[in-house]
């Protein structure tokens, strides 16, 4: 089936098998390998991307469902060489170790901060329940998101 999607501002049209998962479309067709796969059961969130601005697990979506959508992947988050405040927060606060969960974690945080610009620690921990990290114990991820929230609020 033919689909047209806009990914990180570029519009693509491809003929895809209906069973092709969005994550494999991004990785294997568009070669956008920043979106990772860490499980088969929609638990780990490593594959999280923004679909029309909302965080979704691209392993739990067929590419055909995204037909007509605007998608942002981790590769499209930085603008004009400027890191997104969430990316910056992860770097500043040591919010990653092996980096495998990081793209998905960042995309979830981006969606979350759109809806809750001034979250408590508890709210942050709840918001990232769909993203598993095995390295950090989450403490510095929480700090990274707090850093980003503050930076985004101050509008710089």
């Amino acid at each position: 089936m033919q689909i047209t999607v806009t990914v990180n501002g570029v519009t693509y049209t491809h003929d895809v098998e209906p069973r092709l998962l969005l994550v494999h479309y991004l990785r294997d067709v568009l070669n956008l390998t920043g979106t990772h796969i860490g499980c088969d059961t929609s638990q780990c969130g490593a594959c999280t991307v923004l679909l029309n601005g909302k965080a979704v697990k691209s392993c739990t979506l067929f590419a055909v469902q995204a037909d007509g959508a605007e998608i942002t992947t981790i590769e499209g988050l930085a603008r004009d060489g400027q890191l997104h405040p969430v990316q910056e927060g992860f770097w500043e606060k040591h919010g990653l170790q092996c980096g495998y969960c990081t793209p998905g974690m960042i995309m979830t945080a981006v969606d979350f901060l759109q809806r809750n610009p001034n979250p408590t620690e508890e709210e942050i921990r709840h918001a990232i329940e769909g993203n598993l990290c095995r390295c950090t114990g989450y403490q510095n991820i929480v700090r990274a998101i707090q850093y980003a929230a503050e930076k985004m609020r101050s509008g710089s």
Binding site: S42, G45, T48, L51, K54, A55, V56, K57, T60, L61, T108, D111, F112, A127, I128, E129, G130, N131
Partner: peptide, 9 residues
């Protein structure tokens, strides 16, 4: 229910 991403879909 689920998590933020699940609730979005």
């Amino acid at each position: 229910i689920g998590d933020l991403q699940v609730r979005n879909m």
